[in-house]
Amino acid sequence: MSKKIRVLVNGARGRMGKEVVKAILNDPTLELVGAVDPAGTEEDAAVVAGLPACGVLLTGDLSDTIEASNPEVMVDFTIPQSVMGNIRIALQHKVSPVVGTTGLSEQDLQEIREWTASYETSCLIAPNFAIGALLMMRFAREASRFFPHVEIMEYHHDQKLDAPSGTAIKTAEAIQEERQKINQGHPDEEEIIAGSRGGEFEGMRIHSIRLPGLVAHQEVLFGGLGQTLTIRHDSITRESFMPGVIEAVQRIRSAKGLVYGLDKLIF
């Protein structure tokens, strides 16, 4: 039997973190060796996630926990304000980060590229781990060749800290690579309420909706002569992200440098 991949979960008390803990414990190819959360309660990570105790306790210091548990991969679902520090600590310890925390800028990504080269360790930044969302982005890019007029609507729970979502940004970037910038709508249109037309990106408009009851949803709406095309993906529960997280953990150690987007690993 092949050796299990040793995994640390950072943000293990969060909603996504608890799902990741469960997914790792239920996968025979992976071993949970560490669980970190700012609260650092020393509760059993599996019990916090709703499973029988596994013996891995929640701790509060990432660096100390990495040194004590010797993981190969760190899965990070934390907050934008701390994620860059988390990534650097992991890379310094030769641990490959698999990051679902969004809100990273292009400058941040460039800095991570430099870190992965310096520490010779791979890192995945994934705006979305749902396989259906990856296909939605891929289909949207293809559609933009024929329908250049497009608006993106993304819907998330009201506790999400960044807007637009990483998925919406990555979708817009994919469309940008396929079509030239165009000015959409009437040239003399006026926003009576500022922001009502959404954020502008290369001529596209991105709209962010935040409401309780939502998880993660996105529509890419294309308009053409006498027709529209809608490509939509819905994550109904956070379990939808777990197959992608597992794939990322299993593959990231064989990658090189910064990988931006789970699609780069699995397609």
Rank of each mutant, 00 (worst) to 15 (best):
A39S: 14
G50M: 10
D27P: 13
G34I: 13
V47S: 10
D61F: 10
E42Q: 12
V56Q: 01
C54N: 13
K22P: 01
E31H: 09
V20G: 02
E19Y: 04
A23C: 13
E72G: 05
A45H: 01
V36K: 02
V20E: 01
E67F: 07
G55D: 15
D64V: 11
L58S: 00
A46P: 01
L30H: 03
L57F: 10
A49P: 01
V33N: 00
L32N: 03
T59A: 02
T59V: 02
E67W: 06
V56K: 00
P38C: 09
E43G: 07
G34N: 13
V33K: 02
V48I: 14
V21C: 08
E42N: 12
N70I: 12
D27A: 11
D37T: 02
L32H: 01
E72K: 03
P52Y: 04
P38K: 08
M74R: 04
A68Q: 15
A23F: 08
V20S: 03
L30V: 09
E42G: 00
V73A: 06
C54D: 13
K22S: 15
T65N: 11
C54K: 04
V21A: 12
L25S: 03
K18W: 05
T29E: 15
G50T: 12
P52N: 13
V56Y: 00
K18C: 04
G17S: 09
I24P: 01
P28V: 11
D44S: 05
I66E: 14
P28T: 13
E42H: 12
E19P: 01
K22E: 15
L57D: 01
S69K: 14
L58E: 05
A39L: 15
C54R: 03
G55A: 14
L57Y: 10
V36T: 04
G40R: 11
D64L: 15
I24K: 00
V47N: 02
A23P: 06
V48R: 00
I24M: 05
D61A: 10
D61W: 08
